[in-house]
Design a protein around this nucleic acid. Sequence first.
DNA 1: AGTCATTTTTAAAAAAATTAAAAAACTATT
DNA 2: AATAGTTTTTTAATTTTTTTAAAAATGACT
Lengths: 410, 410
Amino acid sequence: MNSSFILEEEPVGQQSVVDYKKNQKQRKVLAHLYTQGTCTLANLAHLLHNSVPSVTGLVDELIQTQWVTAIGTAIGNNGRRPVLFGLNTKHHYVAVIDVSTHDTKILFMDTQRKVVFRGDYDLRLADNFSFLSSLIQYFTNALTDSGINAEKLVAVGISMPGLIDSRRGLNLTYKNLNHTNNSITGWLSDQINKPVYLINDTKATVLGESRFGGAQGKKQVLAINIDWGVGLGIIVNGEVFQGASGFAGELGHIQVDPEGELCRCGKIGCLDTITSALALVRRVQRDILAGQVSKLATFKDQIDQIGIDELINAAHQGDSYAIDILHEAGFQLGKGLALAINLFNPEIIIIDGVLTNAADFILSTIEQAISKYCLSDFRNDLTIELTQLNGTAKWLGTHAYVMEDIFANY
Amino acid sequence: MNSSFILEEEPVGQQSVVDYKKNQKQRKVLAHLYTQGTCTLANLAHLLHNSVPSVTGLVDELIQTQWVTAIGTAIGNNGRRPVLFGLNTKHHYVAVIDVSTHDTKILFMDTQRKVVFRGDYDLRLADNFSFLSSLIQYFTNALTDSGINAEKLVAVGISMPGLIDSRRGLNLTYKNLNHTNNSITGWLSDQINKPVYLINDTKATVLGESRFGGAQGKKQVLAINIDWGVGLGIIVNGEVFQGASGFAGELGHIQVDPEGELCRCGKIGCLDTITSALALVRRVQRDILAGQVSKLATFKDQIDQIGIDELINAAHQGDSYAIDILHEAGFQLGKGLALAINLFNPEIIIIDGVLTNAADFILSTIEQAISKYCLSDFRNDLTIELTQLNGTAKWLGTHAYVMEDIFANY
DNA sequence: AGTCATTTTTAAAAAAATTAAAAAACTATT
DNA sequence: AATAGTTTTTTAATTTTTTTAAAAATGACT
């Protein structure tokens, strides 16, 4: 190989080697400020292995580009109080689009993750092209409604369920969203003239938990997201684990019952067919119609009224049928989690999704199942926690996914 | 937090900030030379984002410390041929100790992974203290026999089966090897006065495959190691995946048959009890004693003579019972692998261990099972290969584990 | 108000990296 | 065999970056 050729090729992308190094450091500063919130110059100097005057220069430039601003001064010190720097919240915004099979939410967030605009829309994820064109419609309207200067919007992050290839911007579960010559992100990006990121909803959730929730600072994290499906988000060495094509963590489609139901994925007896919210509701509806004794039997003539919330409510009211169903779901979930624990050896598992409201009923059986199906050495360093983020983990994670990529390529 | 205190604390370990940066680069050089073999100055300059004169200085220092040496000159170029630099093979050696439940091997390898001495010993891994003292005995003898100057031995790497906490140097499966006040590595290190590293045998295997075998350059790798147990080695983002405590990849102890046999781990119906070499041999012995028609029936009066090799031989000779057994084992293995594929979404799976000789019989059923139990999207980017390293993957991986840590902390 | 502690700025000094030119090593051509 | 053409390596001057150390600024406490 001709190496002088390599040397000539190096300052690619209009960037000299010198700029490259400076940027490397500025990226670190931005990423650090993003997760830490604020920071003194001395902190940053330590982080970068540089002296304070050097770091002052780097930060000054970031202030010029409006990314960073002085936030105030630290308190409590004896001498002169250091200036705290943080991300400038007034000049760069990110849109987070939360797509699910029952609705769509569009949020505009500042660099400190404050939601400056929120719109909820009755748009359901559907496997056809009109979904994306509707989404663009809602998005452009939301942008005007938000009052944010379009110039200041730096990127759009979309979280949705399915087998998502983030790198290529494809959704392999909802294949009709992908364009023949273009990806979902490519097409959307062309339409709205902004970089568009696509991330699986469960991966967004675990990223949110990892950066801003109960899993903060942990390196090996699992987050189980029980919703219409069962999703497993994985953090490995502090980063979202995508796998080769972006599909890592498909716990919902491992076979747990060879004689089970047909899953929408085409396989038989997937975990999804047993412990997802959708599966639970269907089972309850069947049982009630078949004459099961339960408080839920009042819905017998309007069976569609039974949803996951009704099931959980009944359990909270002491309905033993509802409790049994949830116990059983927890146990099966724990059995599935045990597999993931054996393979990933996580330090923390976060429980998220609609079943968090049923924590009283599922947590203990999840733990029972894990005890039964995992070697004890795996349990010693493992904690299992409920999400503390009140359903915002997915948004925070999508935001983090976008911002961290922006910083990585600043 | 008092940040001037931090600044004062920084040049810890007798190393100034300046040295820190130089070392950062020298580490990269060493790590690069280790995997690449040789390299020109221009290559290294490109790698480090530095000019050739700068890199020349760094390399000169590494030559002073005997880590690097000029290997020769590249051929084929038009002008002056660049000097190729590589790791000096004459001044630093690493001992690799390969411990298993049926024997122990001690190897001394140079920095280019050439085996300069090999000793095979009839020492079996046993859960008692005398095992370690015997090991030390063999090791010191081997060191003298090898003729290597003890000064030049930089570290010792030990691979063994079990739940291994590499960071702490413990083996949780063979708990009596751990000392009450000291770890395995701590104790051995005190005895032989060298840094000692401990790594799980399957993780060593996958690391070997990743650095020097069929998985070279791949980021997401699974290596299945079928031996007396079933081990799964995992490479995530190009690095060995350890999990929180070092136990990641315990595929052998996931339950596959709720009505199965009692496993030595205490659980019921683990994959180990079905597809490990040990389990297969036991099953064959039982079947033969029970009157199974097979070529192996000639061993009926000396049933202990049936080992895994005899089973594989019989299959190669067309014995349909042996073939059935191997087919079945392959299918069960594939079923287990399917779980790991759903969770890890690897780009390549390497098959290693004693069953590689039975590849003709197991590979197709492994693939069948994967097709049956995995979503097709997972299979598209996935290749399944046999090891090409002829049983050396474990040694190469142990070596790499040691060397990469040495370089990381140079 | 004055002292002490700490951060920030400044400017001089030191270190490191780059550039560009010269030298060296090799090929191919005449 | 000499020479022109290529490429790598070395050298030294130049530039850039970084650090050091001192001065200035800010705030707490007495």
